[in-house]
Each structure stands twice: as structure tokens, then as C-alpha cells.
Design a protein around this nucleic acid. Structure first.
Length: 431
RNA sequence: UCCUCGGUAGCUCAAUGGUAGAGCGAGCGGCUGUUAACCGCUAGGUUGUAGGUUCGAGUCCUACCCGAGGAGCCA
């Protein structure tokens, strides 16, 4: 029996007889020829049957195959320029593992609602596969790059007893008779980990119960949050630009085929090379003031503000020193101007907005106790966190990057929902 | 929560207030190399729901249901 190979490996087996197993992506036929497009997850290949050269029973079997039937295919690998991928399979045998009558997703156009209702099947199509392969490259690249930089992965819990930032809406759940929340950030725990290991990152799902209905929001999304002891804001910004620049370069290097499927213009990605421009909030406000984006001085940026700012640069933009009043209690005040915080956001180009948010943390016990009071937060819940300031507190900084937002920008997607296998949104909990 | 837009065949969409249609998919037939193949034929409908206006409503009005993306909030 011929050896079983994956479709991606076929170019190494030209001239050999091999066996594949996978699913029928599409079938085309004329009187004397049939073309089978077979996919196995690794790649896609075209199988060819010439009527005069195969048994009638095989011809008829293949003639009756429907889209997404699971099949085992035997044949000879040969080079052929007419075939997508450069190699094709001269089919000599087909075994049906299981059928697939009336597969709902055709190769023609479908609307987003229909496709999302069938997300469990849609994953088999070219476009979702390209996006999710880029996502895999990004998530693997994150771990790879951080490890090489000396970071240790120390994950934060998903069940939490209290809000990390107070303002944002949290998903509440019952926890053995008491109240618990699903985390909206691993931030606070990450600081504890950084005091133990120096350079750490947590990487997991986070949850926001905001009733947002936009292309930039999911209720469940993934976030990587590096945190570094003894690091200040300037070095943090350098870390962010090197991190993001390395990820983009990695995707350009390893996912050219996927970006082509997605018809992504790679020029903006090729320009995303550090150093990135840095703009302070006061300077940004100067630009926005009097514009037509609806910007209010001292307030946070709205989506139109972000687009306006990033459109002035040819690569991702670092905006730093947002007003303390609009940032979380743990953000350190700028010693040069306490009204400002040592915070930073990274705005992706092309209107994709904020993909990274972070800053230097307040390390003084006295100041952070004052901030907790000012933010009207229950101090008891933060006692363990305050211990980090009581026992060997040091300056430290960190940031969080939304995986889906990063993938969405890199892939040039119109909506975040395509950047995650099974999106969770305000009106979608299934499949 | 607010604003705007939408809901017609399995899917994507048409249809001046006047006989509900096309393409794709499905079924059947044709075609010697197809690239989302192509060509012909067939089947396929309670036009989101409930009322109302009208000789006549997919189309106009009211209410409701469902969805979309924008604001707010955020990654």
C-alpha cells in the first residue's frame, strides 16, 4: 500500500504513488475528465481522473461525491503547471470514509450572519483558514519572541474576586455560593509575577461585558500581557515597538500565502519597522483640538480621534502620557506633571485603532493607597496587591495587546469576529 | 442605552402600489485540462410577526421581533 502523506508534503514525492486522506473541497467535471480538489488541513491539491484510464466504478464513485465528503485518495504525484500548487495527483483509487449530503456552505458568496451561524463548518473554507493560520503565527511568535527576550510565561487566573480596573463591566458568575467575576485583565496578578520572576507575561482569554456593537469589540478575546520589573516608560515603549515590529515581520516572512488569500496589501505592514513615532497626549490634543472628530480636551480618544492621529504617520503610533484622570488607579503619575500618567497606547495604522495599552505602574504604597481612595475602590480587596508595594517594591511597567485586534490589522480584516475561531459577541454565543 | 440601516427561494440579491424574478446551490442532461469551470432543462416562496390604509401591499402606515455598524466604553 502506498505511504500516507500530507498534502503539504506532496512536492517531495513527485513521481511516487501516495495515499492522502482529507475532504473534498470542490469537484469539476467534463465528459472525459474529473478534477477533485482535496484538502487535509495542511494544504490543498487537485486530483485528476481521465475516464479512459480509470475503472468505470471509480469514475462513477467520484462522479457522485459531494462537497466536504471525507475521502481517502490514492494516486501518483506529478508536476503540472496547470494545477493549483504546481503538483497534482493522478487518481487511481478513492475510498469514501463518510459522505456529506447538502453541505450548506457553497463556494459562492454568503452573508456574515449565515457564515457565523455555520462557523463550525466555515472554518473549513480558505479565508478563515488563512486568518487563523496568521493568528497561530502571531500567538506562537509572541511566545517565541518573549521567551528569547528572557520572559517567563506566568498566567493569571480567569476567576477573580474583584474588578481590576473598576469601571469596565464584568461578567459575574456564582462561585460556590459567593460572587466571582471573569477576568478583564491579568494585570494585577501579573505585577505579583513580575516581582517574582522579573520579566513575565500572561496570555489568556479575557472578558468584557460591555454592550458594544462594533467591528472592534468581542465579549471574549485573548490578550498577551508582558510585565517587567525595573522598567520605566521609555524602555516600555521600546519594548512595545520591538515586540510588534517582530511579530509583523514574522507574519510577512511565514504567511505570504495566507496574506495573498486575504488580498492584504502588505505595504503598510512592511513599513511597520521600529522605531515608531512617539506623540505625547498634550501634543496629540493640540492636533485634535478644533478638528471635527468630536475630541474633548482632557478626555480619552474616540475612534475618529485615533484614526485622525494615526493617519498622519506611515507606521504604528505610540501615544504616551494620557491624563491620570482617565486612566486606571495603578498607572504612575508623571513626576514632571502629576496630571499626566506614564501610560502609552499603540495605535495601528489604517484606522485599526488601539491594539496595545500599557504604562509604568505606581510603586509607592502611599500614592497607590491614595489613588484607591480617589477611585472609590474597596481597599480590603487590594490588600494582597498593596503587599507588592510593602515588600521590595520597584519601578515596573507592562502592557497588554489584544490578539484579535493585532491579527485583524495584520490581515486587513473588516471585523474582529473573523480573527478568533468562535467569536463571542453581544448577540452571539453560538456555535 | 442612543442613532442609522436592514429582514423576499437553502445562499447572494432584484422587483414605479398592478401576474414574485435572476444567479449560485440541489436534481437531470451536455462538454478532452477545469481553476468559485462553463452551457441547457427541472424543482424550489405564508416576502420577519401582528394589525391597518387601498379595488389591489414585497412596496405605504403603526406596533413588535430579529439582526447589522456607529456612538459611548475599551484591547
Amino acid at each position: 500500500m502506498p505511504s500516507l502523506v500530507s498534502i503539504a508534503e506532496l512536492p517531495k514525492h513527485v513521481g511516487e504513488k501516495v495515499q492522502l486522506q482529507g475532504w473534498l473541497y470542490n469537484r469539476r467535471s467534463s465528459k472525459k475528465l474529473q478534477f477533485l480538489l482535496v484538502r487535509d488541513g495542511s494544504a490543498m491539491v487537485q486530483g485528476v481522473l481521465v475516464k479512459d484510464e480509470v475503472a468505470e466504478s471509480l469514475w462513477d464513485l467520484v462522479d457522485g461525491l459531494t462537497q466536504e465528503s471525507a475521502i481517502r485518495v490514492e494516486g501518483e504525484v506529478r508536476e503540472d503547471a496547470r494545477s493549483p500548487g504546481g503538483v497534482e495527483l493522478g487518481v487511481t483509487g478513492v475510498e469514501v470514509i463518510s459522505g456529506s449530503p447538502d453541505y450548506p456552505i457553497s463556494l459562492k458568496s454568503h452573508g456574515p450572519e449565515f457564515l457565523l451561524d455555520h462557523r463550525h463548518l466555515w472554518l473549513r473554507s480558505k479565508r478563515p483558514q488563512a486568518v487563523l493560520k496568521v493568528r497561530d503565527e502571531v500567538t506562537f511568535g509572541i511566545r517565541d519572541w518573549l521567551h528569547k527576550e528572557g520572559f517567563i510565561n506566568v498566567d493569571s487566573p480567569i476567576f477573580t474576586p474583584n474588578a481590576c480596573e473598576g469601571t469596565t463591566t464584568l461578567f459575574e458568575t456564582e462561585y460556590f455560593g459567593s460572587q466571582a467575576f471573569l477576568t478583564q485583565s491579568g494585570q494585577l496578578y501579573n505585577e505579583a509575577s513580575a516581582m517574582a520572576f522579573g520579566k513575565v507575561f500572561c496570555f489568556g482569554p479575557t472578558f468584557r461585558a460591555e454592550k458594544s456593537k462594533t467591528r472592534r469589540h468581542l465579549t471574549e478575546f485573548w490578550m498577551v500581557e508582558p510585565e517587567v520589573a525595573f522598567m520605566g516608560l521609555d524602555d516600555l515603549m521600546t519594548l512595545i515597538e520591538n515586540f510588534v515590529g517582530a511579530l509583523v515581520a514574522r507574519v510577512l516572512e511565514n504567511c505570504a500565502e495566507e496574506l495573498k488569500v486575504l488580498e492584504r496589501d502588505t505595504a503598510p505592514l512592511e513599513r511597520a519597522v521600529p522605531p515608531f513615532p512617539r506623540l505625547s497626549y498634550p501634543d496629540a490634543a493640540e492636533i485634535l483640538r478644533g478638528g471635527d472628530t468630536g475630541f474633548e480636551d482632557g478626555g480619552d480618544f474616540g475612534s475618529p480621534d485615533e484614526t485622525e492621529l494615526s493617519s498622519r504617520y506611515d507606521r504604528p503610533l505610540l501615544v504616551h502620557r494620557f491624563p491620570s484622570a482617565i486612566k486606571a488607579f495603578y498607572m504612575k503619575e508623571d513626576p514632571a506633571d502629576p496630571k499626566l500618567s506614564l501610560s502609552v497606547d499603540l495605535l495601528a495604522p489604517e484606522g485599526y485603532g488601539e491594539i496595545v495599552g500599557g504604562g509604568q505602574r505606581e510603586e509607592s504604597l502611599e500614592v497607590i493607597e491614595r489613588k484607591i481612595k480617589e477611585h472609590d475602590l474597596p481597599k480590603e480587596a487590594f490588600e494582597w496587591y498593596l503587599d507588592l508595594r510593602r515588600y521590595g517594591s520597584v519601578p515596573h511597567s507592562g502592557f497588554g495587546m489584544g490578539i484579535e485586534r493585532a491579527v485583524s490589522w495584520i490581515c486587513g480584516l473588516g471585523h474582529l469576529r473573523e480573527a478568533i475561531p468562535f467569536p463571542r459577541m453581544i448577540h452571539r454565543l453560538s456555535p
